[in-house]
């Protein structure tokens, strides 16, 4: 089931939390929503779940609009809100039954669905405990179980792995990936490694606007543009080496790395590589090239660059 967001604007008081954003998510796609705190991630997600009414624009989940047919939209969405609010005084199994009933699941299917969810989310040992007594990781699983119990076609997860330990994070990520094969998933995070690991597509938003949209590889390539190399050249004097490197036509600039006698950073001009020329230069002058590393632009850098101004 596709999600189409058109010109979504949401204003709180005088502040535009989300400013005229449009995007599309297709079935079987896991979309990562990335942005600093207060960028508008949660607001957008709340609008998709029809918890918030947009000031402008519309969202379609499948054929249903969140403004005209919110009940239909809600039936098809599984939602894990930020901070995972739950009824702490309820036992896990009672809570799942309550959610199943309210989702309108057929009475005869409810016990089966609850068992499936308990199994899928690894809650066998805790199903009779009160939710308030569970650890954060287990609470998160309960949150996920309640979002999945009616087998929704769309899954919206607001920071699904926050507060989990590394093992739990890996488990939840695997679960999301498995679910994402047949369903439409939108998840938000400010942990870059997480989105990179789980998502097919990344949407970076800042101050309520989309600043980047693409696969993790694409985004990286786009930001890379110019090649960056780290070199260690031995058996030569620093100034000589710098002077020689600067003469190479493909090199844009050379920078000695501070604190080291023979390490340099060079950046090539757009769309060309200086690796071969650098190597030849060393051979010609009988310098020993002991290190040449292509500096990869990390998603962190893209994120930083896009959201800092």
């Amino acid at each position: 089931m596709d999600i189409i967001v058109e010109n979504l604007t949401k204003i709180y008081g005088t502040q535009k939390a989300v400013d005229n954003i449009s995007f599309k998510v297709h079935t079987g796609e896991v979309l990562g929503f990335l942005g600093p705190n207060g960028a508008g991630k949660t607001t957008t997600m709340k609008a998709i779940t029809s918890y918030l009414v947009p000031n402008n624009g519309d969202i379609h989940v499948g054929e249903f609009s969140v403004i005209d047919q919110p009940e239909e939209v809600k039936k098809r969405i599984g939602y894990l809100p930020e901070n995972n609010p739950l009824y702490n005084d309820m036992p896990v199994i009672d809570y799942l039954r309550f959610v199943a009933q309210i989702q309108g699941i057929d009475k005869t299917r409810i016990p089966g669905r609850i068992l499936e969810m308990v199994k899928l989310c690894g809650l066998e040992g805790e199903k009779h405990k009160k939710i308030g007594e569970l650890s954060k990781g287990y609470k998160q699983r309960v949150g996920l179980a309640q979002a999945l119990i009616h087998d929704p076609e769309v899954l919206i997860l607001d920071e699904p792995t926050s507060g989990l330990d590394p093992n739990q994070i890996i488990e939840i990520r695997d679960l999301i990936k498995a679910i994402g094969r047949e369903k439409t998933v939108i998840l938000s995070s400010h942990i870059l490694a997480e989105v990179e690991a789980t998502c097919d597509r990344i949407l970076i938003i800042n101050k309520g606007r989309i600043v980047a949209d693409g696969t993790p590889e694409n985004l990286r390539k786009k930001a890379q543009g110019q090649e960056m190399l780290k070199l260690t050249i031995e058996d030569g004097s620093k100034n000589e080496i710098i002077a020689a490197l600067q003469k190479i036509a493909t090199i844009d600039w050379v920078n000695p790395i501070s604190g080291s006698e023979n390490r340099f950073e060079i950046q090539s001009r757009p769309n060309v590589s200086s690796r071969k020329a650098t190597f030849d230069l060393c051979v010609k002058n009988s310098w020993t090239l002991t290190e040449m590393v292509v500096v990869e632009t990390k998603l962190e850098d893209i994120f930083h660059e896009l959201t800092m101004n």
Binding site: T49, S50, Y51, E71, N83, P85, L86, I102, Q103, Q146
Partner: peptide, 14 residues
């Protein structure tokens, strides 16, 4: 206060 209202109101009920 606990935020469960959000969970409740995003279920298919009015």
């Amino acid at each position: 206060r606990s935020g469960t209202i959000e969970l409740l109101l995003t279920k298919p009920i009015s």
